[in-house]
């Protein structure tokens, strides 16, 4: 196991050294190796496919530009991941400013959660929903209704498997804030999707 880790580390160090020498092949390898993982992070935060591709592209362009100043004792993936998170959050903030007038509240005016009218109809039998694209649409709609910061933190935990401390470090927030945002996001999602899941449990 430790051999695998050492080999992986040295592979990464070699890759960084080649990138710093300006090797084009090394850059192609870097893109192939990390684009899917970074895309998952960006997509988890933005929930937008094309924007996530643009974010990943921007991250690689920055890597190409600043690889010379990358410290060899740092972790390459951590650096890439951090840039992806920051780019994704910047995109969310930009969109929030641009479409402020379109922003929908998490709760409806009377304080009740949004409920899909089709809920409980025969077409939405839970067994079918699990394999249905509609379920994905419902899930993503509910995720989009979460406050952006809570969703980003929750997705960093769910998709990237980061610990509370790692998330706090990346986002420069307190560990308690991470914990409470994840708690909130999880609670909201469960409440809003309760009708779809309860019958299966």
């Amino acid at each position: 196991m430790s051999n695998t880790i050492n080999s992986k580390e040295s592979d990464e160090e070699r890759l960084v050294a080649r990138l710093q020498r300006g090797s084009e092949e090394a850059f192609v390898l870097l893109v192939q190796q990390y684009q899917q993982r970074l895309y998952k992070t960006a997509y988890g935060i933005t929930l937008e496919r094309e924007e996530s591709l643009d974010i990943v592209q921007e991250v690689f362009l920055k890597v190409h530009r600043y690889i010379g100043s990358f410290k060899k004792d740092s972790n390459l993936y951590t650096w890439l991941h951090r840039m992806t998170v920051n780019e994704s959050l910047n995109w969310i903030r930009k969109m929030k400013r641009r479409f402020k007038w379109l922003h929908r509240p998490v709760e409806s005016e009377d304080g009740n959660d949004f409920i899909y009218p089709e809920l409980g109809s025969e077409d939405y039998a839970p067994e079918k929903l699990f394999q249905d694209k509609e379920m994905k649409t419902i899930l993503f709609d509910q995720m989009k209704k979460l406050p952006e910061d809570a969703r980003a933190i929750f997705m960093l935990r769910e998709i990237d498997g980061l610990s509370y401390d790692e998330i706090a470090d990346i986002l420069k927030i307190k560990r308690g804030t991470v914990s409470s945002r994840i708690f909130y996001a999880r609670k909201r999602l469960k409440e809003n999707l309760a009708g779809y899941f309860d019958q299966t449990t």
Binding site: M143, M155, I159, L189
Partner: peptide, 10 residues
């Protein structure tokens, strides 16, 4: 269930 559905879709 919610967690695995999110992960699977992403």
């Amino acid at each position: 269930q919610i967690s695995s559905l999110i992960t699977k879709n992403i």
